[in-house]
């Protein structure tokens, strides 16, 4: 098979833990309040990326391009090797989760690579969120994945490849939906 080993089929990787839930019956309301949103408004507003890759933008980036951005815009807080500082550590925890000193970081704990793109785009760099271009977010995400040994140096991250990255802890979560009693009101 020609797919590199850090790729898995999207259908397979999205099956566990997706937490499909029923659509409740909601009575229609005709209050004539609110304004219909246009496609342009929704597009400009929406920065939510799902694990299936929905709403990942055009553009791409590699670990090599990402290192330059990281060194300049991230290393001051996350450490030059991702070891942490003012911001949390980004590498080093793989294999530690079941030990007495678990380290929960992007490499060891995060189940989806899409979350990395989504979070960096919405919240980083800390002092200047939503200032990076989509290419820069792809690149710096790629560099963090590479620092964790999850993708190779030359991997290109884009809307197609990012959702297919197999994170080490992809199957590490058990959904507790339905486990809690909700009595309602």
């Amino acid at each position: 098979m020609c797919t590199p080993k850090w790729f898995v089929f999207a259908a397979f990787c999205l099956a566990p833990g997706l937490g499909l839930a029923a659509t409740p019956q909601i009575p229609a309301r005709d209050y004539d309040v609110g304004t219909p949103a246009t496609d342009a408004q929704m597009k400009a507003w929406d920065i939510i990326v799902g694990p299936e890759g929905r709403n990942l933008p055009d553009g791409s980036g590699t670990p090599v391009a990402g290192k330059a951005i990281y060194d300049q815009q991230c290393a001051a807080c996350h450490g030059d090797a991702g070891q942490g500082g003012t911001g949390p550590r980004l590498v080093g925890g793989i294999g530690s989760l079941a030990t007495a000193k678990p380290i929960k970081d992007v490499g060891s704990y995060w189940p989806y690579a899409t979350t990395l793109f989504d979070y960096i785009r919405r919240a980083m760099p800390f002092s200047n969120p939503q200032s990076l271009t989509n290419d820069q977010v792809y690149a710096v995400s790629a560099y963090i994945l590479k620092m964790n040994g999850i993708i190779p140096d030359d991997a290109v991250m884009d809307r197609r490849t990012l959702p297919m990255v197999e994170m080490p802890n992809r199957n590490g979560f058990v959904s507790m939906i339905g486990a809690s009693v909700v009595t309602g009101k």
């Binding site: 997706l18 937490g19 499909l20 839930a21 939510i48 990326v49 799902g50 694990p51 299936e52 995060w110 189940p111 989806y112 899409t114 979350t115 989504d118 979070y119 919240a123």
Partner: peptide, 8 residues
């Protein structure tokens, strides 16, 4: 959405 966004 159909499923959760799996946010940070």
């Amino acid at each position: 959405r159909r499923g959760p966004a799996m946010s940070k």
